[in-house]
Design a protein around this nucleic acid. Structure first.
Lengths: 241, 241
DNA sequence: GTATACATCTCGAAT
DNA sequence: ATTCGAGGTGTATAC
């Protein structure tokens, strides 16, 4: 039986270089002392410290320290990897668009692991798209005579989540899966202003399980409306059993 | 010399449980077959697949598959970890606020690594805050007679990056380190509308290295202004040498 | 390619 | 504890 992993402790630089250049289907983790230089959308310097470097077959690279979710440095998928050996091991990760370079300088590698990860099957429940779907399937959740016209309706100033009408005219709806903030109010305002240019009889509203105090104040100032719509989580929890 | 890591291949469940409960200063990586159930802000199911689980001392947990930057599942720092052994190894990661639970079910663990990662020193150059600083130090970059009054000036509808005045009245400035979009325009609009309520003689503008076409159109519609301000990257690149 | 908005966004700062 | 906005946001999607 072939094991789905390989581990090399205290590898020399040639071994690491060889692995990085030839193992194209494994996720590679290197634990070592390293300094990291980034230049692209911004620039950064991370001085020598013990960090964990992960490299995926699709060109994703990230470097973690001992805290938090966010890597210290990274490069998204599609990046190209180059390895050089000097006094130290140097891994360069290059991205074309936007043009950016990550340079990882490694004086000591404590171990390197190769693991044959899979993509796996994954399902997520409770997205904004599902909220919109729920409303389309049951429009009276919004107003008794609400009837949807278009989903993701395009305007020059952004896409309307759901455009519909009632006996009182058009209704522009912006959905938020969590508490709505100022940005959500500004979105609806942009859409309603645009629609109103050609169709004066239009209202706008936010559909969300909650709204921040100042967002609500702004909403009122703009003469928009708030539709409280608690995400029905129960049905998703059922699926997890 | 004590090595800054430990690796156990094909560990039994008791060994993994013991490590997770007692090794409080190491970053722990487990490569194994696992299924993952998440319920909290949303819900998700990841069926059995070979994935890499990382656990940091601060309670951060993330689970990667073989592609992309984003973990399949995760839990941010501050989460509490509980380990149970049944037929399978079950790692529960619990967060209080918001209330959410991640359940990792592991029938086979191929290896577990413990690595003593450090926080390290890190500096980032090229943030929006630096742009604002540059303008404050050299206000004529905006307009000949521009003079800053307040940074991060608070309004009920968000914070103004930089409030200043010229001979023509007040000037509200919103900075963007990259290309400005519709959202940036909406921000300035909110701030200018508010200031105008008490001080009619006010203009608003976006300071950015670029602006999208539709954002520019909206800017004009709102009678706001665009100040082209290319981020001077050269000085940061110098620092990387 | 460009742009727009979502995200279990994460994270820090300020109230 | 809440809320706001920045972020090297990443990611998918539509044009």
């Amino acid at each position: 039986m072939v094991l789905p992993y390989k581990i090399i402790e205290m590898p020399d630089f040639d071994t690491v270089k060889n692995i990085l250049e030839n193992e194209k289907n494994m996720v590679i983790n290197i634990f070592g002392l390293c300094s990291v230089f980034y230049d692209g959308r911004a620039s950064s310097i991370a001085t020598y410290s013990k960090r964990l470097i992960s490299i995926k077959p699709d060109g994703t690279v990230f470097i973690h320290n001992n805290k938090k979710m966010k890597p210290v440095n990274w490069q998204p998928s599609g990046s190209r990897i180059k390895v050089d050996i000097n006094e130290e091991l140097i891994i360069s990760v290059i991205r074309r668009r936007p043009k950016e370079v990550l340079k990882i300088v490694i004086p000591i590698a404590y171990y390197i692991t190769l693991s044959s990860l899979e993509e796996g099957e994954f399902r997520l429940y409770g997205s904004e798209a599902e909220m919109v779907k729920d409303v389309i399937e049951n429009p009276s959740l919004i107003e008794e005579d609400f009837s949807p016209i278009a989903r993701e309706y395009n305007t020059p100033y952004g896409k309307i989540d759901l455009l519909g009408k009632t006996s009182r005219g058009l209704l522009v709806l912006e959905f938020k899966r969590a508490q709505a903030g100022l940005d959500a109010v500004s979105q609806v305002k942009r859409y309603v202003d645009f629609i109103r240019e050609t169709y004066p009889n239009v209202r706008g509203g936010i559909v969300a399980p909650a709204i921040s105090k100042s967002a609500y104040n702004l909403l009122i100032k703009y003469e928009l409306e708030y539709f409280n719509f608690p995400l029905n989580r129960k049905k998703y929890v059922e699926l997890l059993r």
